[in-house]
Write a protein that binds this DNA or RNA. Structure first.
Lengths: 126, 126
DNA sequence: TGGCAGCTTCGACATATGTAGTAGAATGCT
DNA sequence: AGCATTCTACTACATATGTCGAAGCTGCCA
């Protein structure tokens, strides 16, 4: 499932809290997004066609629910980035992240801790 | 500079070895890409318009050179993924990568080492 | 019960992206 | 010189994406 930029903004708002109406979602979109209400509705319809969200009518108002998990969406996006921009390998990506200083000292420290903790355990989510 | 999927495939081929002609690039595209020669040319023209590559005529044949570095392109793509899909924070991304088992034990170990070494140094930004 | 307010559905349109054909110029082989 | 090969430049077209406006329901309140 590939989401477009606009779709990500909507899905992010929806994952944050749902079910939600179009109005609800509007208020949770990034501040710099200034869509007409119908623009959002159009996007929601398209997401519904794509089976990314479900649409239920409560009397005259539609209530939406995500049908794809954030985890799956992230996985797709991540894989795409990896394949498309980093030769499909973690190595280049890791190097890139470190070289670009995408991590500050504190983050590095946290990361090290996470890594060390996780090294002991197994387990998954969803 | 945002590159599309098709553009990434071309730029990857061009970064790999350049200058290069359209024919050269054709041979280095992913195996599953089966474009007509003119399709590639169209893409190259668009990349040229976008100032992502330069086009020089050697007599009657165009020779291309990347004008944007792979590093910069990766940076854009990475930032976009981070902002769009991971709340713009490394934390969620790191957790995601670990949970998804994108890193095996050895890689984690290496990563920890790199992190600890780099922790002392400083660097610059873009 | 007449309306306003808010929702919904449809249709429309611009730009972006993917994909390619055609025509004509430049090259090079014979 | 004449022809086949190979390029380039243009044009075209479908689908995807971003953005709305218009018009028609629904429900609630004075």
């Amino acid at each position: 499932m590939k989401l477009t930029q606009a779709e990500w903004q909507i899905m992010n708002a929806l994952w944050e809290k749902h079910p939600a109406t179009a109005r609800d979602i509007m208020t949770r979109l990034p501040k710099d997004v200034k869509w007409a209400y119908t623009t959002l509705k159009t996007m929601l319809s398209r997401l519904s066609e794509k089976e990314a969200v479900s649409e239920q009518k409560q009397s005259n108002t539609s209530v939406y629910e995500p049908l794809i998990s954030q985890r799956k969406a992230r996985l797709s996006a991540f894989r795409l980035l990896l394949d498309q921009s980093f030769d499909g390998a973690m190595g280049p990506l890791m190097h890139f992240m470190l070289e670009e200083q995408k991590l500050n000292a504190k983050q590095k420290k946290e990361l090290i801790e996470i890594l060390q903790n996780e090294s002991e355990e197994s387990g998954e989510t969803e």
